[in-house]
Structure formats: structure tokens, C-alpha cells
Design a protein around this nucleic acid. Structure first.
Length: 288
DNA sequence: AAAAGGGGCAACCGCTCCGCA
DNA sequence: CTGCGGAGCGGTTGCCCCTTT
């Protein structure tokens, strides 16, 4: 067990051992109280002065991922899941960046979602989760299903009046939190398009367009292959899905795959039925 | 009812970036 | 220009809880 050097706030600082592991209620309230009085930042100083026997890093993480008032708890909504899939296809494992577009969600939460739910599907399909093939499965199969589900949900909750009119584009009510990044469109609603707006000529897949209004470029170099490994993959996401699916049936033909439910809680219907995926790949095959 | 296994998630670790002296 | 400290990020680990056998 390591100790940390003497701080300016506590003469006993050098004497205690650093605490690790799960936070206690007392520690949480201590941290909340300290931040309420002194604000965020200077985490090392905060750790020393608050009386917490934790590192500054640990305090920061606990605050940002758990204690901060605007942190949203609970299952990710379908809209949030679609957003994660879409943004991940653009930016790769830029979790904090993706989290910026999901108000109240933390990078850690999104990362865990990706690893536990999405990568699990890739494993079951025997596909590399970072491969173009898997991205096409997501884009051409799962995301349209999710959007369809979102649309169904919005329809079922709408009034008769709404049913007489074409449904409006699915909108997120939340604003994208302001960011200092120059090229980002800040404060703009994240917007998906429904089927009515979809121009099939613009996409290789027979699926709705999924177009969160996020910029294509950024100072982080999302379009720079050096930062985004996906881009070095010869524009992998724009590959013809037919070719992307090539040989795909071989990897799932033994039906060894389990039912796929990477969505959480209430959305555990046939959305991720592998039979449907199977039919989907066969359709792709026969249309060639 | 108990043990084993697996999944989910909070927390840690190491690296990188950035601002400042 | 360089070194240093603070902060942030992504990968990994480990624990807890639930499910299965």
C-alpha cells in the first residue's frame, strides 16, 4: 500500500494510508460537501484538504461518474443507444467525446455499454467488433431496427391526431452541451430522420438514414486516420454491404448464436432475433 | 440449497495532453 | 525550449450480484 507525500492542508497527511476500492457513504458526503463549498478542480488539492484518504484522480472520477448532480442513472434509452452506435461509427473509442452528446451520461458508462453489450454481439457473431463487417451489421441491420422501434414507440404514445399526420422527425429534446471545440455545432438538437425523409439513393443499405447533426470534422482529428483508426480502414463504413456481408453467412450458419439482446430492460423483444439477422443476410445475398 | 460461472459496472492504472513558469 | 504538475482519456481490473446447474 502506497502513501502520498505530505500536503499543505493536513499535517497528518503523510501518516494515513491511501484508501482504495468502493467509496463509502461518508466519503461521498465528504466529497459532495467539499465541492459544494469550494467547487470542482484542483483534485489533488481537494483530496488533501477534504480529509479524504483518496487520490485526486479517485475523487475526480467519483465525482464525475457518480456524484455529480446531473449524472443520469439507469438504463440507456433506445435513442441513446442509437446515438452511441452512430457516434462510435464516426469516432471510434472516443468515449468522452461521444458522452458529450449524451447529456447526463458519462464516458465510463458508454464505454461499459460498448464493451458489455455491443462487443458481446460481435463475439457471438465471430466478428471483430472493430471490423468493417461488424459496423455494417450495426448500420444495416441493428440500427434500422432500433430506429423502427423508436418510431413505433413514439407512434404508440401519440394521439389520434398525430396518427392522421405523418410523424415528425424524431427529435432529442436535450441540447448538446456547449463545448469549446471550434468546429462543433453547439447547442443544436440532435436529430434523427424518419423513413419519410430517407433518400435511399444516398446509402448502400435499405435502411433509414441515421444522421445526428454532429460535425464531420473536429480539431481532435476525427477525420484524421492518425486519430481515427476507422478512417484508415479505406472508408470502411461506406463499403457495399453486400461485400461487407460476404462470407458472413458462414460465420453464423451453424446457428450457434444466442438471441441477441444488447438493449436493456424493457426492450427485450425480438429486436435482436438472430433469425431475423439470418434472413437479412440471405436477402442481401439473393439481391446480388 | 449451495456452488460455479458470467455479466455488469465502479474504480484503478498508465499514458498523453496542456498550460505555465 | 524544457520541465513540471494538473487534468483528462482509454484500457483494464476486480468485485458484487444474478443466473444457472
Amino acid at each position: 500500500m502506497s502513501t502520498i507525500s505530505k500536503g499543505s492542508c493536513s499535517s497528518e497527511y503523510e501518516d494515513f494510508e491511501l484508501r482504495r476500492g468502493p467509496w463509502t457513504l461518508e466519503e461521498d458526503s465528504l466529497l459532495i460537501h467539499y465541492i459544494a463549498c469550494h467547487g470542482e478542480g484542483r483534485w489533488d488539492m481537494l483530496a488533501k484538504c477534504s480529509g479524504l484518504k483518496r487520490t485526486g484522480k479517485s475523487c475526480r472520477l467519483r465525482w464525475l461518474n457518480y456524484l455529480k448532480p446531473d449524472v443520469k442513472r439507469g438504463n440507456l434509452t433506445l435513442e441513446e443507444q442509437v446515438m452511441i452506435l452512430e457516434l462510435h461509427s464516426k469516432w471510434g473509442n472516443r468515449w468522452s467525446r461521444i458522452a458529450q452528446h449524451l447529456p447526463g451520461r458519462t464516458d465510463n458508462e458508454i464505454k461499459n455499454y460498448w464493451r458489455t453489450r455491443v462487443q458481446k454481439q460481435a463475439r457471438q457473431l465471430n466478428i471483430d467488433a472493430n471490423s468493417a463487417k461488424f459496423r455494417d451489421v450495426i448500420r444495416c441491420f441493428w440500427m434500422p431496427r432500433m430506429l423502427q422501434k423508436i418510431e413505433e414507440n413514439s407512434r404508440s404514445s401519440s394521439t389520434i391526431d398525430n396518427l392522421q399526420n405523418p410523424p415528425a422527425p424524431i427529435m432529442f429534446n436535450q441540447e448538446v452541451p456547449p463545448t469549446t471545440e471550434g468546429s462543433l455545432i453547439v447547442g443544436e438538437p440532435i436529430r434523427f430522420f424518419n423513413h419519410n425523409e430517407y433518400d435511399s439513393s444516398s446509402d448502400n443499405c435499405n435502411s433509414p438514414s441515421i444522421s445526428p447533426s454532429v460535425p464531420e470534422t473536429s480539431p481532435y482529428g476525427i477525420d484524421n486516420p492518425a486519430y481515427n483508426p476507422y478512417l484508415s480502414d479505406v472508408d470502411a463504413f461506406n463499403l457495399d454491404p453486400m461485400s461487407a456481408m460476404g462470407g458472413f453467412e458462414n460465420s453464423i450458419s451453424d446457428r450457434q448464436l444466442a438471441e441477441n439482446n444488447w438493449t436493456s430492460g424493457e426492450v427485450v423483444d425480438s429486436l435482436w432475433n438472430m433469425d431475423e439477422l439470418w434472413q437479412f443476410t440471405k436477402l442481401q445475398e439473393s439481391s446480388m
